[in-house]
Every structure is written in structure tokens, then in C-alpha cells.
Design a protein around this nucleic acid. Sequence first.
DNA 1: TTGAAAGCGCTAACAG
DNA 2: CTGTTAGCGCTTTCAA
Lengths: 339, 339
Amino acid sequence: MATIADVARHAGVSTSTVSYVLTGKRPISDATKSRVRASIRELGYYRSVGARSSTIRRTNVVALVLPLRDGVHMPLLTGLVTAAVTAARHHGVDVLLMTGDQAAEDLRGVVGSGQVDGFLVLDGEIDDERVASLRRLGLPSVLIGQPAATHGLTCVDLDFEAAGAACVEHLADLGHRFIGFLGAPRAAYRRTTGFAHRAMVGLSAAAMRRGVTSTIMPTAGDYCSVLRALEALLRARPAVTALVVHNEAALGWVVTALRALGRKVPGDVDVVAICPDELATRTSPPLTSVLVPAGELGRRAVELLIGKLEARAVPPLTLLAPRLVTRASTRPVPRGAHP
Amino acid sequence: MATIADVARHAGVSTSTVSYVLTGKRPISDATKSRVRASIRELGYYRSVGARSSTIRRTNVVALVLPLRDGVHMPLLTGLVTAAVTAARHHGVDVLLMTGDQAAEDLRGVVGSGQVDGFLVLDGEIDDERVASLRRLGLPSVLIGQPAATHGLTCVDLDFEAAGAACVEHLADLGHRFIGFLGAPRAAYRRTTGFAHRAMVGLSAAAMRRGVTSTIMPTAGDYCSVLRALEALLRARPAVTALVVHNEAALGWVVTALRALGRKVPGDVDVVAICPDELATRTSPPLTSVLVPAGELGRRAVELLIGKLEARAVPPLTLLAPRLVTRASTRPVPRGAHP
DNA sequence: TTGAAAGCGCTAACAG
DNA sequence: CTGTTAGCGCTTTCAA
């Protein structure tokens, strides 16, 4: 493997000249510059990142910390990860993958040994303890998700409150006056700071504003739970003509269950989902949905982190505006359907 | 951040002694050893991987190259990735994530700059061109998947032929005599070396051996295609009492479609799937399945790569034996059902 | 069993 | 505009 000395010799210049051609940190005559470039190409030279990072104290590698535990939906994860890697490469930065369980000690090691410049942490439900240990690492970091206290962190997330509201707005615009909400499993609402809670709040608030009646219920991810929840919902409020679903696991069962209960989608019941795009398009009919912009999330997180690495000021909390895509599961309510 | 010199000073020894305590490459008296260890702990010292890799020419980082394009199923991907990362960490190795599209030039850069020691490449459908460029990189690599020519590579994959056979064996054991096979989309069978082809061959061969009649058809991933395929199948061969499905996208629709055609699962038609485990358990009823051992695949790939890094001889092709798990979708055929 | 010192490949003063 | 040189933090001879 060629070294910088090889290139210098080959081009008939000093090593520092080669280095400066590479970094652009001082003016070099076009003549030597191109001579050096030619030598570099000819010898197939690449700077050793080891030696380089050892001198400049910077690796151009960021760690991406993913939680192992479930509850994080797969498509979201993969979309986010590929977008993050692509965006990072675009800035000449590589991504080191770490899993959430190799927590404290491993992370310390990675920063202690100067292996990465910063952290990208994916964790919707991060708790204070983890936030604290993150801060203790002393390296710039960006959190994907929105913890209780943003306090001194940089976070990026979908604006779930706006997402919940967008669903209601859409349905109200179509003429619906009674909507049901199938939410996350019950446990998710214990934390009034979680995204489940925020979506629900946004939905409820928008419903009040628009004067539509909303009935909300938590749901588990299996068919039986979905069926039971819908039965209960339709019994309690037979006038319901629209459904907002914020539960990726349950999503696949909703239309099936509604059909089993004798309701057509759309027609008898319109459905709007809050979920990654490919989930909404893989049902039949494809669902009108507020998409969780996985790719955008990853991209923005990288951008923010790189901003911090370059000592730029970045906003502490970035909330991505929801985007509602209309598909076959929602339609204007026929005139006079709701007296 | 503490350096090795700090530790040496603090422990009252030379830097080389500290280094040797760390590497264990020469005997050190227990007295100094523990003194050095204490200083290390006290100062919170970690070896700089930059400086280290710059001298020893080894980074303890491997690249994991994932294809971006779809066709690779998400759950498989995430399971594989987390297992690989975990296994690698277990060997003190970190994982650098790369996406398949940043192909040639980026990969060259990563090896040229000495950023990684080897490659883990996930690509079921890798072509000769990519294999060649992989070999040209000149670093140890392990391929997850099985290309046409294993020639000089190290590969690990599920034994799809055995998987296809296992499905037939199971169904034949239960008494089924007529089985249908819902395969991958048509295009997947153009390559007679792909995993789709191999599963199909294994199934057909086993059917012949067991004297059961098999009818095979390709399938797209949407509900309509599945429904049409099943209609066609049942029309062509009404005696079919069992179905093998090797199509993850279609899987979710199979039971629904069978019900729409008036068949109970199990009972009228038994279903066996070849798919990742969590896909088989998320349908109702849960499906008997041959699982694609995503985690095992990742783990083995890492083990093989580390073997190569340590200059151990490793088998060129590792085929993981399929494991069939019986669930609610298959049952013994009632006596006399098939005269 | 330990230390001194050379060297890994690169960058960044310092010096023209 | 360019070269010389002293580091960066670590490993590994060589010498005791």
C-alpha cells in the first residue's frame, strides 16, 4: 500500500506538499497540484485513516446506536439506517453500528479509544438514565426520538401531535363527524411524553377544534385484540364512520376485522393510518396515511450531528412536519349520510 | 484523554511496559502488571485505536455491506445485522455499515485507507461482476448468500434446497398427497442459481421421492396476485390439500385468500411457509414454517470472517440446515380423506 | 523482567 | 509557493 512518502517521491515534492494538496489548507501551484494528483492516482494512494485520525483527533466516523428490543418497527429502522448511512457518506463520514444493549461500557470504550466523533442514537422511549449516560460520554450526539426532557440534547422526531391532528383535519374535511382512534398498546400511554401520547393528544385536540366526536382506545397487535377493540368501538358508538390507526402491528388486521364486522373500507368506515409508507401501501385497499418519514429522520439526524461536529449551532429539537397522503381508504362522506 | 505515556508515568514504568501489559506479548511481573492496571483504571485510559491501527496495520473493524434495493426482506435484514454486530463485538470487532450502492469506489477507499480488516457482504443475488470486484479488493470477505460460482469465496447461506424438501417431508408425513407451491415472483426463477430456484428444486425432488403430486407457481406479492394464483391452482388441481409458500410478501395474504375461496386453514388446506420466524408467527393461525435463520446467518458469517482474519482455514460454503417448526397451520390428514 | 529509542503514516508549525 | 522537522500515540525492536 502506497504511503504519503511514496507519493511525494514519485511527484518530486515533499510530504507536506502532498498533505496540503489533500487538505487544501494552503495554496499550492496548479503545476505541482496536478503533478501530485497524478502520482496519487497512479500509485492508487489513499490516506491511512488510522495515522490521520491519530494526528488530527478526528475519525470521520459516527456511531449509530440502535435499540435491539422490539417496539421499534423494522421498516422504519431500515429506512432510517440506509438514509443515515447515505447522508453520512455524502459528508465523507462513515457509520459504525452499535446495538443498544452494549450500553455503557462499550460506548465508553468507543469514545475513550477515539473511534468515533459523535453519536446518533435511535430511541423513541429513551429514559433519563440513558440520557444522562449519553451526556457523560462527552461527545456530540443527536437523538432520534423525543425524550421527556430535551434539556441540552439535540433531538429530531416526527411531530406526532401534528400527525394526529392532520388525520382529524383530513377526515373532518371529508365530512366525517364521528371518528374512532385505535392507538398503541395500553402500556405505551403510561408515559405522557411518548409519541403514542403525543399523537393521541394532537388527535383529540384537533377533534375538539373541528367539533367532531372522537373515541379513543388502546390496542394490542394481534387479530383478536383488533377485532375486540373494533367491536367495542362500534357498539359504544355506532355512528363512527372513520378510524385513525396508530399501531403498526395492528394495522394489517384492521381492514380484515372491519370486514369481518360487516363494514366496507372505504364506504362504511374510512381509515387513516400513522405509519411508514410501505406499510400503508401494502394493505388492500392502500391506506390514506400520515407517513413516518424514516429516511428524512435519518438524513436530518446526520445533518444535525455533522453540524455539531463542525461547531455550528443547531436547534435542540427538530420536529418534522407530517405529510398526509390520500389513498383508497378515505372518501368524501356522501351528502346526508350524517343528519 | 489519557495517553499511554500518562499511564506509564503514573505507574512509574516505561511506555513499552504498559503496552506489553496491554498486549500480553511478553511476561510482566505480577507486581508491575497490577500497578499498571490500577493506573489504567484510575486514569480511565483507553488505547487510541487510531494510533494503534496505524502501527499494527489492523483496525478490528469489519465492513458490513448491505444492499439497498428491495427484495431483501426487512426482518431478515435486521435480525441478521443485530446478530452480526453482537457476534463481532464478542470478538472485539466493530462493524462499519455500508450500503451496496456506494459500490466500487467507496469500497476501494475504505480498504485503501486501511479502515477495515474485512468485508461481510449480504447479497443473495450477487452477480459475477460484483464477485470479481469483491475479490479485487484484496481483503478477506464473507458472502451471505450463494452466488452461481462459489469459486474462491467464502459463503454462508440457508440450505434452501433442503428447506424445500423439509416442507414436503413434513406434509407427506402428515398424509398429504397433493401439494401446491406458491413461489417467488416469476423473475426470480430466471436465475437457476438463485435461492428461489433452489427451494423449488428441493421441493420438487422431495415430492418425486415421496410420491406426492406437486404443482408449482410463481406469485407476486399483492393480494390480487395471491388470490388469482390460488384460484388457478385450485381449479387446475382441486385435490390439493397443502400449500408451501416461499414468498414473504405474499405470505400475509395466503390465509385470507384461501378463506375468501372458502377453504379453512388448517383443515381444508394446510400451509407451510419458508420465511423468517416472526413472519410465520404473526399470521392467524401461526404458520408451520421452515425458518430462515437470520441471526444464525449473521453470527456464522462473522465467525467465518474472523477465522479468515486469523488466517484459519474456513470452509468455502456453509449451508445452514433448515429447521421446520410445526404450528397451527398443519395437521395430520383425517383418515380416508384421500381415497 | 524492564527501558530506551526507532518507527508507523500523517499533519502542522516553523522557516524560507 | 514549498521544504524541513517535530510531533500524534502506539508498538516493537534492541539492549540491558
